[in-house]
Design a protein around this nucleic acid. Structure first.
Lengths: 358, 358
DNA sequence: CTGAAAGCGCTTACAG
DNA sequence: CTGAAAGCGCTTACAG
């Protein structure tokens, strides 16, 4: 029974406990699972044996026999970005509250095979389900990856899959911030886009839509990398063009890089050009000037995605405090399957009215 | 064999494959594990069965029987801070390269019981080992938590445990940056400290040491929260004191908050007061003024901690490219058990000589 | 090359 | 209340 581990340490099993306590393995198991049908005497002996052996049941064996592993697998690309980081925090916290552990895997690259591989590795653990962050950043069609067996939820920039999805409403946000900039009096708004496949770049789409709807001139979007340094370069170039009076950057980091570039060339923000970001990075309010941006509730998105996932699992249905299932145990509202998390416009000082003509 | 999962989906097992392929379970297993001793004919049939059933071996069952779960458990507090975030990225990437998955658990609070709980939950998965980030931020003595069974590595601000530890050399960094500030001509340097238990606040200790060694006046350190807003408050207060010409903040976010507070009160940085941070946050170079700071190699720290952990596990010993074990398979160098990762002074524009007296 | 058997550490009916 | 047995999905000697 006392076997060696990979580490060379010996690990104690339920058999050891049973032997030391002088009872059967079944009894120990019963004790472990609530103690019903175990005499006080046995309980005492077992408790003692566990104590002296420093026994802990193997989560692995349990998961195997119970056919349910209380773990949530999260797969994410761009794990170092603000959104994924904050969402992971939310997922982690909510998972803990609900008694689930979390496993994370990030694909080596954006390519189909790597993503599939990550998704499969995640599924192999027989987790409660998979939370897939930003599938729409992948340069492939999502439907190619799913259905994987088992529950899942996607966190996306925009509702598209139809089910089990929490959406950050990026398009709406892009539209709102662009409109705001236009409302300030700018003729048009330039866009420095985050490096996401165009069809799935919702922020960009919102920007375009706002421009279209107001009949404004639509400049080509400028595709940027994730590095603020790239945005700085772009800022320097943009500074050369006096038609540029307002720029919406795909996220706050890029907005910050952009402002640096603009300043490198002597432009003032917002006097010469207004710059808005997206996300409401924790430091955005401290910037000088404070960044006008769209606040995203990433942490909440993470938490909600856990609930959305667990809602698909019978054992985790939480009728008591929510009325999530009806009398038949069926899902009551379609809306419970997906969720929109709306961004909020935060107006600070990096944006303002354009300078008077000439 | 085809059982239901928690999700209600059926899952296919090795038995199903064996049956469909018309061979024994053993043969399928052999096929799965390299295919030696399986006739080409069988291989074909098995491959086909796997394909049509869409079979994937259960990682759980494998881990159980092999008595080794190729997963690294990382437990961390303050998971949303820059350091942990970046380290997690490094851990994740390196773990992937070395064929391990990763599991993360963050204690609910800093209290002993919660930490122990996280540590135990991690250990219950029978992982390859545990990477414990910033144990020294915990308000308890580390030795209380270990030895837990199995391999582990700590990532700390300063080498203290003696073994299996990667240290970020915070004290050295604090000393270096304080000395730099002094070298600029400042009479002394104030410190806005990160909310870490004093005995383990290495950055603070380095600062104090530099002051002591140069015989400078040692002001009381100002304890701050993690929120830059707290630092802003402190900045406003500090602005009232004309003796304050140089401040070293416990990290870049706080430095940024501090600068905001100083400016709120009309102080200029660095003209009126120099401010230095710590970590070299990705945005620090874009700040205006650029932040003088200590660059920390968090990602590398994460990667190294994985290697340090795996080095404790026979199956992962990598003789080929490193000579990590000697002829007897013993560890050759003590130094391989722990690692110092030195920070690097980055001089930017938030610091300068003090203004001429009056 | 191949299959039957035993075993990993647990849990869950099933008879007492 | 209690123990023996079967089983979770795999792997690993062991005999052919």
């Amino acid at each position: 029974m006392t076997k060696m581990r990979a580490s060379g340490k010996k690990s104690v099993s339920i058999k050891d406990v049973a032997k030391l306590a002088g009872v059967s393995v079944s009894s120990v198991s019963r004790y472990l699972n609530g103690g019903s049908n175990v005499s006080p005497a046995s309980q005492k002996k077992i408790a003692q044996a566990i104590e002296t052996l420093n026994y802990r049941p193997s989560a692995l064996a349990r998961a195997l026999v119970r056919e349910i592993n209380p773990a949530i697998a999260v797969v994410t690309i761009n794990s170092s970005q603000l959104g994924p980081t904050q969402m992971l925090g939310g997922i982690e916290a909510r998972a803990r509250e609900r008694g689930a552990s979390i496993t994370i895997s990030v694909p080596e690259t954006d390519r189909r095979e790597d993503i599939l591989n990550s998704l499969h590795m995640a599924a192999d653990q027989n987790p409660l389900g998979i939370i897939f962050m930003y599938p729409d950043m992948v340069d492939e069609n999502i439907s190619d990856f799913f259905p994987l067996e088992g529950p899942y939820v996607m966190v996306t920039g925009q509702q598209t899959m139809g089910a089990h999805e929490v959406s950050l409403c990026d398009q709406e946000g892009g539209e709102i911030i662009t409109r705001y900039l236009l409302s300030l009096g700018h003729k048009t708004v330039y866009h420095v886009a985050v490096p996401v496949r165009l069809e799935y770049n919702r922020r960009l789409q919102g920007w375009r839509k706002a421009l279209e709807n107001t009949g404004s001139y639509i400049p080509d979007p400028i595709i940027c990398g994730w590095d603020p340094e790239d945005a700085r370069e772009i800022g320097r170039r943009l500074a050369l063009n006096d038609d540029v009076t307002a720029v919406f950057a795909g996220n706050d980091e890029l907005a910050i890089g952009l402002i640096s570039g603009l300043r490198d060339m002597g432009k003032r923000v917002p006097d010469d050009v207004s710059v808005a970001g997206f996300d409401d990075h924790p430091l955005s309010g401290f910037w000088d000037p404070g960044l006008t941006t769209i606040h995203q509730e990433f942490i909440r998105a993470g938490r909600e995605s856990v609930d959305l996932l667990l809602r698909q699992i019978p054992q985790y249905q939480e009728n008591p405090d929510g009325g999530i299932t009806d009398a038949n145990g069926d899902e009551t509202e379609i809306s419970k399957k997906s969720l929109d998390i709306h961004g909020k416009l935060i107006i600070r000082n990096s944006t303002g009215a354009p300078r008077q003509e000439k």
